[in-house]
Design a protein around this nucleic acid. Sequence first.
DNA 1: ATGGGTGTTCAAAGCGCTTTGGGAATGAGT
DNA 2: ACTCATTCCCAAAGCGCTTTGAACACCCAT
Lengths: 344, 344
Amino acid sequence: MSGINLKSLSEKLGLSQTTVSRALNGYPEVSERTRKRILQAADEYNYRANAGAKGLATGRTMRIGHVIPLNDDHQMVNPVFGDFISGAGDVYANAGYEMVLSVVSGEKEHDAYRDLAAKRSIDGVIVHGPRKNDPRPALLDQLGLSYVVHGRVDDYDGAYSYLDINNRRSFLRATEFMLDLGHTRLALLNGWEDFDFAARRRAGFEEALDSRGITADPSLMLEGEMTETLGHSAARRMLAQNNPPTGFVVSSTMIAMGVRRALDDLGLAISRDVSVVAHDDVLSYLDNGNALPVFTATRSSIRAAGRRCAEILIQRIENPKSDPVTELWEAELTIGQSTGRAPT
Amino acid sequence: MSGINLKSLSEKLGLSQTTVSRALNGYPEVSERTRKRILQAADEYNYRANAGAKGLATGRTMRIGHVIPLNDDHQMVNPVFGDFISGAGDVYANAGYEMVLSVVSGEKEHDAYRDLAAKRSIDGVIVHGPRKNDPRPALLDQLGLSYVVHGRVDDYDGAYSYLDINNRRSFLRATEFMLDLGHTRLALLNGWEDFDFAARRRAGFEEALDSRGITADPSLMLEGEMTETLGHSAARRMLAQNNPPTGFVVSSTMIAMGVRRALDDLGLAISRDVSVVAHDDVLSYLDNGNALPVFTATRSSIRAAGRRCAEILIQRIENPKSDPVTELWEAELTIGQSTGRAPT
DNA sequence: ATGGGTGTTCAAAGCGCTTTGGGAATGAGT
DNA sequence: ACTCATTCCCAAAGCGCTTTGAACACCCAT
């Protein structure tokens, strides 16, 4: 129905397309009087420049891509994703960008970037879930696409923009906190350690134990999908061992909820019998008890990360010659009701 | 870097752009020999048609929009969203469509649709989270944009495409199941009843009680954000009443997890002391205990809904004259470990 | 030889915008 | 009176594709 174009709009105004276009895009060489007239007419007819045509003419699509990998086993999208894009999306909207999403599984991921680049349908892209030896920065540099990595890749030689939290330090501190409470048998329930963030968390965990002369027990360390079920089954299993842990260091509040359920199953009290410290992404739908936190946790808002990644990417797109931006955020350790002195 | 266009590709081949274009788009009027040559060259140079230019020429952008509303209070994206788009995204990818996302809050939602339509950046749109008196179908019909509603709007006169689950019936059955177990004091923890799905669930709940001559107790019915916290605090409060409920009918497994935590707090055993039945969206990251379900639940996969909505929408886009498609799915009631006979 | 298919290719127009390279009008400077 | 900037506006080219209408070659039947 609707859909007036520049041509007819300018005809209605008795002006050339050039003038109307310039007025609408804020160029100076048009008198204020006519600009006002034009703006008003554009509003009246609900005119908006055809995105495809504009992209063709300018070479900029005003569109940013997110390629989100699908876990092949569970066809699962990382549940933090909703919050991330809600942060990023807000920034995009205010800057006049659109967000395009590609959910792809495994091997097809590479192609997704190639495709988006070759079709020229985006100006830049956010890289989610970087892994060890992640090939994407190299690919994107080669494709000439602007990008920002949410997280880090350990092994890329080139300079690239990223925003990460200090995962190693977070887990170092969380683990030390447990050690200070007298816990010596500590379990780690982690995400897949193929992901950079999880590898760093494990390193922090082990570093803390090492510094107290404790060697990490492999039977108390598990990596996997960060679900409630993982927390539950792992905790059940570990607590049934000969020398069960008195504390759990876990990578998400979802896992922590599973651990709590296992404790309930076994009639154990959280904090008194077994302590739990988690990493909390401050997801909007998992508020970890507003006023007094349920779980002791290292916290860092995924939504804030989404916002900041978007800002950085836009800045990179609009100024590609500038130096890459890198930020490393510290997570905050908040004491909740899930930790206490180790039972004696 | 990369980025060859039709012109240079056809020059390399010594053919006209017409022929190359036709070959690539599968038109018959080009000999198999040349088509093969062209396909090969296209592959070699990694040629892909510029999306904007193609859209301009054809009038079809091969892009589908999802406008997802942001809860203003919590800046929260519905956590089922990840699964929905992972289902839809897969269908899009296979059909050659891209997905564009707009996360917008409250009053700006209307504008988002207007914008996308006026800029001609999408061919169609999925309507999420329909509410009572939802104005969007009327708006979209007026804008001439193809769409399909995930859920239903109660009050729209026009014919429109939707995919919904039978929420009323689900909650009717779940409630009857509880009644059959001897529970007479039943609580309902629901999503915001401004949403169509939640209103229907409540209707089903009340209908079941009515049919047994029980009148629903307003102090046992709550609507709100479907979080763990809601389940926890509501259950705590309701169980502290004079005449506490022996069963909870709740709208998500997230809420159910909160109820379970409240029971643990109070030293009550789930199923023996208090029963819980939930609606389960079968989210990939909340698998409700793979083999034996933790919660008794009415189940319907959100991912499957995403897939189907996408299929319907594509069909509508490619064949706009066809009649609207409407589907109503029945949820499946699966018995888990969270329900038992009412204590006597 | 002539005409009509049939199969294969092409030149050029058009999609809706931005942007280059002027042109006309006005006012100021000499 | 004449030049020279300024200010404001415009015609036309170009972005990379699809698609219309026509051309060309070839073959078979008349």
